[in-house]
Design a protein around this nucleic acid. Structure first.
Lengths: 347, 347
DNA sequence: CTGAAAGCGCTTACAG
DNA sequence: CTGAAAGCGCTTACAG
C-alpha cells in the first residue's frame, strides 16, 4: 500500500539539464538536437537523440512554448454533437493533426453562451489555431481570438468574415447534384426539407437544388421548414410534408440525420413507403446512412479533402501565424445511391 | 490587406509585469491575487482582479504549470466513436470539467497501436489525469503513466489493476434488472446478445442477467455472440438468433447500438415483429433509443453520477496526486420502458 | 501583508 | 559547431 502510494507520486521529470550532464554536453547543444533546423553536428544530434530515447527524456512543451510562442495545441470547438457527422470528423481530425505532432484541446458545449466561455478558457492556452465545427462564435470572442493572434478556421460552414479561414464542401454543387440525380431518374415534383435557416450549409444546399430544378424545367421545389439538423426535426417535418396539396415524389433533406428522421416519420406517421411512394436523399454520408433500415442515398462530403485542407492550414499558420486567411470550398464528387431512391422512368 | 495581415500578428501578451507596473505593485502581489489560498489583503486582491479584467490579463497557464507541476489538463482517450454513448459522454465530461477550470485534451484513435502513441504524446503535456473511455491501454503505456505520476481512471470499464481508478455502472445489477423486468412481464425464454468478450461491461451484464434468470427458475438464457458493440454486429446476430431451435421471447442486448442493429436485423431479415414476436431490451439509453423507429426499452446508465464521480477524482488528484485509487460502481436505477417490449401475461 | 530574488525547463542570440 | 548567459511568464520561499 505504502509502496503503491509512493509509486504514484509525481516523479521529478527528466530535464535537459539531466540529459546534458549525462552526456557531458551543454544544455544548448542538447536542446538543439531536438530542433530540425538548428545548427548542430549530425553526429552530436544522433548521440543526443539516442540517449534521450534511452533515458526517456522528452522536452517539456510548456517550457518550450514559453519561448517559441507556439503550443502545438489546436482548439476544436464543437457544439452539434447529435449529428453523427461531427464525432466522425472529430476523431479523424484528431488523428490527422496528431500525425504532425499537434494536440487537440476539445471544447464541447451546448449553449452558445457556454461556447463563448469555453473558447475564452481555451484561449488562455494560446492554441496555434482554433477550429470551429459548425457553430457560431460571438463577434466579441472572434475579436478576442484576433486580438490574441489566434487564427480561426470554420469547418463545414461558410466563414462569415474575411478574417477567418473557411473549409467546406461546395454545397451549391451538392444540391445541384441531387436535383440532377432525381430528375435523371424521372422524378417530377421535388421538395426540400430545410434545417437551420441561418446555417450556410442549409442555405446553399437548398439554393443549388432549387436552382438546378428550375433550370431543368421543373416547377420550383416546395420547401418544408424542419428548423434544425436533427432526427426529431426530420421526423416532425413528415406531418407538414403529408399536408402538402400534391405529394412530391423526390425529397432532398438538408443532411443525413434529418433525412433519417424524415424517413421514419413518413413511414410511421404517414404510412408511406420509401422509395415506392417517394425517394429520399440526404447529405453527408454518415455511417448510419448505410444501415439497412434506411439505406439512404446521399451526397458524400469530401471529408478527406476537407481534413487535408484543414491540416494544411494548421501547419501553415504554425509556421507563419500572419498567413492571409482564405476560404476553400471543395466540390463533392460522390453521390452514393442506395435503396431510399428509385428510378421512376419505369412507372 | 496589409492592415489585415498586421492585425493577425501574434500580439505580445499582457503579462504579470505589465499589470504590476500598471498597478504600481510587485509581481509577487499581483500573482498572489490569482491564488485563492495566498496571503494577500482582500482589498488588494479586489483591485488587482478588477484591473486584470479591464486590461484583459489572464495568467499564462504554461508558465504557471512550470512551477506548480499542475496543468489543469485532463487527457481524454476515446476509441469507440461509433457508439453514440461516447460522444454524449465526451461532451458532458468536457463541460463538467471546464466548470472547474480543467481543459480536455482529446485523444481519439482507432487502432490500439495508435492509442499508445497518442497517449505518449499526451503525456508530454503532463495532464493532471488521464481518463480512458472504454478502451484498453497497453501495459507499457500504463507503466509510463505511472512512472510519470499521471493518475488514470477507466470510465465505463472495470479497472484492470489496482493502480488505476475506475468509474462504472454496476453492470451485474443492470443485467439482473433486465431479467426481472422481462420475467415480471411473463417472458419465458430469455436470450442475451453478447458483444466484445473481453469487455467487462459485456461480461458483467451477461452474468447478472443469466444469474437472475436462473435464480427465478427459468432455463439458462441462450447467448448469441455478436462479437462487437456495433449496429452491424447486432444486425448480423439476427441470423444466428433466427437459427435457434426454439425462439426466445425476451432478448437482452449488451448495449443500445447493438440492440438497434439487432432489431433492424430481426425485422428485415427474419420478418419478425417487435414486440409482438419478441421483446428487446438494450443498455445505455442513448438518445437514439428514444427514436420512434426503435422506441427501445433500456437500462439508463447513471451518467450523471458517473460524471460526478469522475470530476471528483479529477479534483482530488489535482490537489493530491498520490491519492489512493479506488473503483466506484454505481448501480443503475432506471429502466426506461418503451415499445420494444410488452407484457406477455395477457397471452 | 508586501517585495526582491531565485528558479521552473526550456530556447536562442551572442561569442568563441 | 558548441557553450555561457539571458530570458520566456509565472510562483514561492524568504525577508522585512
Amino acid at each position: 500500500m505504502a509502496d503503491n502510494a509512493k509509486g504514484r507520486e509525481r516523479k521529478p521529470r527528466i530535464t535537459v539539464k539531466d540529459l546534458a550532464r549525462d552526456l557531458n554536453m551543454s544544455v544548448s547543444t542538447v536542446s538543439r538536437a531536438f530542433h530540425p533546423h538548428a545548427v548542430i553536428a549530425q553526429q552530436t544530434r544522433d548521440v543526443v537523440l539516442k540517449r534521450a530515447q534511452e533515458i526517456g527524456y522528452r522536452p517539456n512543451p510548456f517550457a518550450r512554448s514559453l519561448i517559441t510562442k507556439k503550443t502545438r495545441i489546436v482548439g476544436l470547438v464543437v457544439s452539434d454533437i447529435t449529428n453523427p457527422f461531427y464525432p466522425e470528423v472529430v476523431t479523424r481530425m484528431t488523428e490527422d493533426l496528431r500525425a504532425f505532432g499537434m494536440n487537440v484541446m476539445l471544447v464541447a458545449a451546448q449553449a452558445p453562451k457556454e461556447i463563448d466561455d469555453a473558447v475564452r478558457l481555451l484561449l488562455t492556452y494560446q492554441p496555434d489555431l482554433a477550429i470551429i465545427l459548425a457553430s457560431r462564435l460571438s463577434p466579441e470572442v472572434r475579436d478576442e481570438c484576433e486580438a490574441q493572434g489566434t487564427p480561426v478556421v470554420f469547418f463545414n460552414r461558410l466563414s462569415e468574415d474575411d478574417h477567418c479561414f473557411g473549409v467546406s464542401c461546395d454545397n451549391r454543387i451538392g444540391g445541384a447534384m441531387v436535383a440532377d440525380f432525381l430528375i435523371d431518374r424521372g422524378h417530377q415534383r421535388l421538395a426540400y426539407i430545410a434545417a437551420r435557416p441561418d446555417a450556410s450549409t442549409n442555405v446553399e444546399r437548398r439554393a443549388g437544388f432549387v436552382q438546378r430544378a428550375i433550370e431543368r424545367g421543373l416547377e420550383e421545389p416546395v420547401c418544408v421548414e424542419a428548423g434544425l439538423f436533427s432526427y426529431e426535426a426530420g421526423y416532425g417535418a413528415a406531418a407538414a410534408f403529408g399536408a402538402l396539396a400534391s405529394r412530391p415524389d423526390g425529397v432532398f433533406c438538408a443532411n443525413d440525420i434529418l433525412a433519417i428522421g424524415f424517413m421514419d416519420g413518413v413511414r410511421r406517421e404517414l404510412g408511406l413507403a420509401i422509395p415506392e411512394d417517394l425517394s429520399v436523399v440526404g447529405f453527408d454520408d454518415v455511417a448510419m446512412a448505410a444501415w439497412p433500415s434506411h439505406a439512404l442515398t446521399t451526397v458524400r462530403q469530401p471529408v478527406e479533402a476537407m481534413l487535408k485542407s484543414t491540416v494544411d492550414i494548421a501547419r501553415k499558420v504554425s509556421a507563419q501565424p500572419a498567413a492571409e486567411p482564405f476560404v476553400q470550398r471543395i466540390a463533392p464528387t460522390v453521390l452514393v445511391e442506395r435503396q431510399s431512391t428509385r428510378n421512376r422512368h419505369a412507372d
